[in-house]
């Protein structure tokens, strides 16, 4: 497991490379969020078939990182695919829409599935409440989402893909989470290595 991790997480230049998956119910604005993040300006033309339409170099906390973003839009109904992309991704942006309670309730399903597929009790995730510009139609209050995210032990942020509010921040938050989890898993391994000889002795 350990050697595989290192190969997937850094390329030949030693730059970190993360695969991030954007997940959530239908119509929450996953692809809008992704497109906004990848392309800095809102453009009329958008070609999803181009190979690097989901790849981006970014500098987060002064450390360069290469991000590949899995936009799962358009296939969320089909659960057979979920396991596949959940296994490959390093971090997850769990998006719900603040104007649709159903999508908020679906987050839990995703959360549990991720932990099950990843087979661990913690995975780098960020809870994202999208469409926060639609204040008048809001049904999920921010404090409610905060309480919920605290329960899950993950950070949360509200975004607006339309107004490009907190879009970069949400991805930066996730990258930090991924880095944190890598660090802690490294430390785990280190302590194990240290312990081993002791136990033999």
């Amino acid at each position: 497991m350990a050697p595989k991790e290192t190969t997937t997480n850094s390329n030949s230049n030693g730059m970190q490379e993360f695969k991030l998956a954007v997940i959530g119910g239908g119509g929450v604005g996953k692809s809008a969020l992704t497109v906004q993040f990848i392309q800095n300006i809102y453009i009329e033309e958008y070609d999803p078939t181009i190979e690097d339409s989901y790849r981006k170099h970014a500098k987060i906390d002064d450390k360069p990182v290469f991000l590949e973003i899995l936009d799962t839009a358009g296939q969320e109904e089909y659960k057979a695919l979920r396991d596949s992309y959940m296994r490959t991704a390093d971090g997850f942006l769990m998006v719900y829409s603040v104007i649709d309670r159903k999508t908020f309730e679906e987050v839990n399903e995703f959360y549990e599935q991720i932990l099950r597929v990843k087979d661990c009790d913690k995975a780098p995730m960020v809870l994202v409440g999208n469409k926060c510009d639609l204040e008048s139609e809001r049904v999920i209050r921010i404090d409610e989402a905060k309480v919920y995210s605290k329960q899950l032990g993950i950070p949360m942020i509200e975004t607006s893909a339309k107004q490009r509010l907190n879009v970069d921040e949400s991805f930066a938050l996730l990258v930090r989470e991924v880095r944190k989890s890598l660090k802690s898993s490294d430390e785990d391994q280190l302590t194990k290595k240290k312990k081993k000889p002791c136990s033999i002795l």
Binding site: A32, Y46, T49, D71, A73, G74
Partner: peptide
């Protein structure tokens, strides 16, 4: 998916 993304994003 590609088709739908065009529909959604433009």
């Amino acid at each position: 998916r590609d088709l739908f993304l065009v529909e959604e994003n433009q």
